[in-house]
Write a protein that binds this DNA or RNA. Structure first.
Length: 325
DNA sequence: CGCCTAACTGAGAACTCCCG
DNA sequence: CGGGAGTTCTCAGTTAGGCG
């Protein structure tokens, strides 16, 4: 994206392709590198090409939506024909711990919303912590009085089903307490909503040419029944209606064999059981951790583990573990 | 709009295995 | 042989969506 090397003319005459792009495309993307010479901690200049084509449509206040789904209200100002993010931008920078050489990808929806992806300028990979801002106590929300980020309240899933946690369940209560300790916005969301939203966001942010599913582990997955239910659609699409052995492989290449059993009458809904606990133990997986299961070949799954719910004391420091084990 | 059913999930009971 | 750990199976509960 953004590659414009064909010497187009930006002083008023646009090619028809450009005209269609700027007038008809629903989403416009651009990137910005953060350089201390541009004083990015205080403000961020929008690309002139972008603002020249859009500035009449830009409102005075816009919304930045970070990878975590949390949104920030940002004020715009124009100086010397350049549009800047100003009011609220500093908060966004602080909350995401942005530093020099990081680069951001903005997706503008044509109204007032910019969705932002954040990349580390050294590793050229996305900043994993950006997905947990505002959820693990990382965001300094109390600083910004009127510009506190807020959890965007959206329908979680088109098919949100399942039993809510019992109020007196000790395991759930423990996890609920842990989450409450680590996040600023705990009052607004039920544990299930948070979990489903997280699963959805992680699933959306994770891309693979292989089929995959995301699970945030509950206490029962690593204790209790010591099983892991595979989502219906994944089971139906990729697994047979009989018991199989699935190989789970971590990033070090170490493998575990896990029994995958269809556990609902007449339906292909698999659960991991035999061998699952060995995988949990050997990889130090705890409840609250997020696992991505990527089906790389027949019954061989690459597993990525993101620790988020465990070791609450660690997370209070703002260090979100991102270890694909 | 209300009812009904299918889809989906979590929880835990029941069962099996293994080790001391 | 008993107890604990691990595995399998079933049930209860919620909700989206179809239908009258």
């Amino acid at each position: 994206m953004g590659g414009r090397d064909d010497g187009q003319n930006w002083d008023g005459s646009r090619s028809w392709e450009e005209d269609i792009y700027w007038t008809h495309f629903q989403f416009i993307h651009f990137t910005q590198f953060l350089q201390t010479t541009t004083n990015f901690q205080q403000q961020l200049a929008l690309p002139k090409t972008f603002s020249d084509n859009l500035k009449k449509k830009l409102p005075e206040n816009v919304t930045l939506k970070g990878p975590s789904g949390v949104v920030w209200n940002i004020g715009l100002t124009t100086r010397d024909n350049t549009v800047y993010f100003v009011d609220g931008w500093q908060q966004f920078v602080n909350d995401h711990s942005l530093k020099e050489n990081d680069f951001l990808v903005f997706k503008y929806n044509g109204e007032s919303l910019f969705e932002v992806l954040i990349f580390d300028g050294n590793s050229f990979c996305e900043k994993a912590t950006s997905y947990f801002v505002g959820k693990c106590g990382h965001a300094q929300t109390e600083q910004g009085d009127s510009k506190k980020p807020v959890i965007e309240v959206t329908p979680v899933q088109t098919k949100k089903r399942g039993r809510p946690p019992k109020s007196d369940d000790s395991g759930e209560k423990l996890l609920r307490d842990l989450v409450a300790c680590n996040k600023e916005h705990s009052e607004a969301s039920t544990l299930d909503r948070i979990r489903k939203e997280d699963e959805k966001k992680i699933a959306e942010s994770f891309t693979s040419s292989f089929p995959y599913f995301v699970k945030i582990l509950k206490a029962g997955n690593v204790g209790g029944s010591r099983t892991l239910r595979i989502p219906y659609h994944f089971s139906a699409a990729h697994l047979p209606d009989f018991k199989i052995e699935v190989t789970l492989r971590n990033s070090k290449g170490k493998c575990w064999t896990v029994n995958s059993v269809p556990c609902a009458k007449g339906k292909i809904i698999h659960s991991f059981c035999g061998g699952w606990m060995a995988f949990v133990r050997d990889n130090g997986v705890n409840f609250g951790d997020t696992c991505i299961f990527e089906l790389v070949t027949n019954y061989v799954m690459q597993v990525y583990i993101f620790g988020s719910g465990k070791e609450g004391a660690d997370n209070q420091n703002g260090h979100v573990k991102l270890d694909s084990v």
